[in-house]
């Protein structure tokens, strides 16, 4: 008897909880509709998105963020000539592309940026100054928001590491890069397997890691005696490790800083940075100035962008 009672109570409570949850959802939907309706009354176009913009950014020091702020002019020089990252402090910060995409996919009002290679249909990439981000537009230079994938290494690279590098820059290696959705560089001849053996350690930017893993796999197929380790961390660590000799080849998803000396660098690919919004957002096109204003916190509501 007692058990039955507890069971019933439990059931009631569970039902209650569900109703509350469902209720929340409905309310919110109504609220959204209400605010959209208000917007129409306000005279803005019916399709114009509205509501406070949720800006999502990468963490300070990230190669993606560095390239983004530089390319859009969010990074500005202060009175002393120091470059200052002016990204609004109201911006959410995440250190993961997955979190960035999930956040934008789940929030109608969010805007963020990711590597073009990671883009999928859960979010929408907007045109910048009328140019669609794609491999072609980055390659022909019409889409301006792109950054280099660099490898850095010290003089006196081991034979195997040099051979791997040759492979990356060869037609075969660049084909792997293009296939992965990145923009290949002019190839330096074709590659023939060297038959070398040994270990190569590669470390650095998490943006470069996926394509580097692909390259390493393709290379190892040709040279089964070579073992390549790819350690995913970040651009700065990649450069430092190469400087300190902790790895043979460092990866950086940005230009080298003036202070990062003592290593050679080579651009192995270009990568576009896509500005992404929610699929429900009607905006398809932003000017680079608008993006800059959004990320600097000067524009905080989507309705301000509607023309």
């Amino acid at each position: 008897m007692k058990r039955k009672k507890i069971f019933t109570l439990g059931l009631v409570a569970a039902l209650g909880a569900m109703t509350v949850l469902a209720g929340c959802g409905n309310n919110a939907a109504e609220n959204n509709n209400a605010s959209a309706a208000q917007q129409e009354d306000g005279g803005n176009g019916a399709s114009a998105p509205s509501g406070a913009i949720s800006v999502v950014s990468r963490e300070e020091g990230s190669g993606t963020r560095g390239a983004f702020t530089e390319l859009f002019g969010v990074e500005q020089e202060d009175a002393d000539g120091n470059k200052v990252d002016m990204t609004t402090t109201a911006a959410e910060v995440t250190n993961s592309t997955a979190v960035m995409m999930t956040t934008v996919a789940g929030n109608d009002n969010a805007i963020g940026y990711i590597s073009l290679g990671s883009l999928d249909d859960s979010v929408k990439a907007v045109k910048i100054d009328g140019v669609e981000p794609s491999v072609d537009t980055v390659a022909d230079g019409t889409y301006k928001v792109a950054r280099p994938f660099n490898v850095v290494y010290k003089d006196g690279l081991s034979d195997v590491a040099q051979d791997f590098l040759n492979y990356i820059m060869s037609e075969e290696g660049q084909a792997v890069i293009a296939e992965d959705g990145y923009i290949s560089q002019p190839a330096e001849g074709s590659y023939t397997a060297s038959g070398l053996s040994g270990d190569v350690s590669v470390a650095g930017s998490s943006s470069v890691t996926p394509v580097m893993e692909k390259l390493a796999e393709a290379y190892q197929k040709l040279n089964p005696d070579v073992n390549i380790e790819v350690q995913q961390s970040d651009s700065t660590t990649g450069v430092t490790s190469a400087q300190e000799g902790a790895c043979d080849i460092g990866m950086a998803s940005r230009e080298l800083k003036d202070s990062e000396t003592g290593v050679e660098s080579k651009v192995i690919a270009m990568d576009g940075i896509a500005v992404i919004v929610n699929n429900n957002n009607s905006i398809t096109d932003l000017t680079s100035d608008q993006v800059k204003q959004i990320f600097m916190g000067e524009v905080t509501d989507w309705s301000e962008l509607a023309k």
């Binding site: 993961s96 997955a98 979190v99 990671s118 999928d120 998490s206 995913q232």
Partner: peptide
Amino acid sequence: NSGRTLAIHMYALLNEGL
């Protein structure tokens, strides 16, 4: 040598969103 455990594997998979 370095090596990732399962929890790190999940973290790394999430990192690039691929």
